[in-house]
Design a protein around this nucleic acid. Structure first.
Lengths: 242, 242
DNA sequence: GAGTGTTACCTTACGATGTAAGGCGATGCC
DNA sequence: GGCATCGCCTTACATCGTAAGGTAACACTC
């Protein structure tokens, strides 16, 4: 019978095999096209066999999430602060590029599993070690996160996705009606992604670093006070600070 | 017959009625739970009736996308540059908060419809008017976009989504094993979103503005040269520029 | 080695989904 | 009055997640 096929081949199921096949299938066919039945076909088993290992499709995807996030690199507290952030940030971005179809799931998923929390804790550790108060570290952690996730999403899913759009505005019309879009398109090519990403990241980290520096200068011996735009960021924006 | 029910009630279908009901349903039940059948039930018609107006579900969603993006405010070229960006940026963010369940669709969707392109053109117009070269304007447009979209996604979908996670790590465990996550949680509450968002946005726009200022000072009469980290952003990051 | 559980996987079935194919009454035009 | 077009419906199908329950192979105990 087909019953013992997999066992005959020594291809017994396992969470590892299932999750790797799932990730593979997602990257090949996309997250929306991914189904337990297709996955089962790939694994040489029936769809319901997967439910022996996971309570449902969502739980399987959670496990894939964990597996990917768990693969992110560790932090090395011995190295300079900025190297540490950049290592983690670029590793995250590379992960997004390695799993572009699955990445939106990661980006929009609650990091409330152990692997997710461990990753958050790691990144928070680096921001904490920069020598600023908890609030400033927390805010920068978050806003750098906004930036990195936004960038990774846009690079992997933003322009590439052909979600549908029956009539994708003909090129000639774009050129005449949307001249700026046309002019700027040249800097949006994948070859430019690195440079653009670097630029924005540097701006954010520069500021964080200069705030840390001025906090250090300000008061040795005093509690870290709320520095520059740190403490309670003002609502009115601080125009050009030339 | 039920046939003429809708016509009796004077509730004839129309793209407008369909799209508004769709958006409403999506916001009530979520994007994934949205189906043409539920929408039809809401409209008092049959599922297939919708297909008279749209080639498919994807096209309907495209139309909803267009409708929402079309509702974004115009630009007022008479006002100061920074006010203009901020108006558009905050309007975009408010749109995300008004349609939190639909927003991920917008954020990850190609802006290749007329409404999408018009929006891009509008925002690009503001960045172009700041007085920097095309490349710098293009890069800042993009990286500010990364930031804003990342922030809006995180604020609306990031922490709120209970996508699944069978065993959501018990709080006591979080407190002992992930102390930084715990310490920092206080600054991640919705009440803090405004302040955090403002902080990051200001950092990015400050830099753009100061680059524009130094470009103006540098050469009146010369072509706008590539200023500061503009032209070809260096790979090696420019450490603390205290 | 017979009996008893447990594991690992399968079969069947159900309700939901997107949508292709085609029907049918009401309206508009000649 | 004849006929086309419009607006909406009926039916049908493939695909999806998964509930319920089965069953063969193995792991025990006695």
């Amino acid at each position: 019978m087909a019953r013992s096929r997999s066992r005959r081949q020594g291809e017994t199921l396992s969470t590892r095999r299932i999750e790797e096949a799932a990730l593979d299938l997602i990257e090949r066919e996309g997250l929306e096209a991914f189904s337990t039945r297709k996955l089962a076909a790939e694994l040489g088993c029936e769809a319901m066999s997967i439910y022996h290992y996971y309570a449902g499709k969502a739980h399987l995807l959670d496990a894939v999430f964990d597996r990917v996030v768990d693969g992110l690199p560790p932090d090395d507290p011995a190295r300079p602060w900025r190297d540490r952030v950049e290592t983690l940030v670029f590793a995250y971005r590379e992960m997004a590029h390695r799993y572009p179809r699955f990445f939106p799931f990661i980006a929009l998923h609650r990091h409330n599993t152990r692997a997710g929390l461990a990753w958050l804790e790691r990144v928070l550790g680096v921001f904490s070690d920069a020598g600023l108060d908890t609030e400033t570290a927390a805010r920068f952690f978050r806003l750098v996160g906004y930036y990195v996730i936004g960038a990774a999403l846009d690079e992997t899913s933003g322009y590439a996705r052909g979600n549908s759009a029956a009539e994708p505005v003909p090129d000639p019309e774009i050129e005449t009606d949307y001249p700026l879009v046309t002019a700027v398109n040249r800097y949006f090519r994948p070859a430019e992604h690195d440079a653009t990403f670097r630029l924005g990241l540097d701006i954010l980290l520069d500021r964080f670093e200069s705030m840390a520096a001025s906090a250090r200068n300000a008061g040795s011996g005093t509690r870290p006070r709320s520095p520059e735009t740190g403490g309670t960021p003002r609502r009115a924006s601080p125009r050009a600070r030339a």
